[in-house]
Write a protein that binds this DNA or RNA. Sequence first.
DNA 1: AATGTGACATACC
DNA 2: TGGTATGCCACAT
Length: 114
Amino acid sequence: MPKRENETFFNLVFEVVKLIPEGRVTTYGAIARYLGAAKSSRMVGWAMNVSHFLEEKIPAHRVVNRNGLLTGKAHFGTSNQMQKLLENEGLRFQEDQILDFEKFFWDPNKELVL
DNA sequence: AATGTGACATACC
DNA sequence: TGGTATGCCACAT
């Protein structure tokens, strides 16, 4: 339903999210910062929300909040869907939180070169 | 057209 | 240490 025709913040978000390597995760803030809108981290979350309606496959499960907490798990099919996907990529959890989060953290600002 | 809301992050009591 | 307030932008109503 969303018409992602225009190249907007959203599209950019998707671009970045799709670049997240398997077994890695990043945060809303990191993405927002990478896009030059550090204070628009909320929009990243919105983008993820909309991503479910998109035809493109957005690994939204690889995007978590700054605490490495699966805040968006509720938006996946089941509560454990998101965690399951990540576990399948080799991550471990404890109370919906990623263990060694920093270790798996993929910062577009670092990994990608502007 | 205006207002409210949201998968966050930061700053400030 | 922890709650409240604010920024930010797209989307739904």
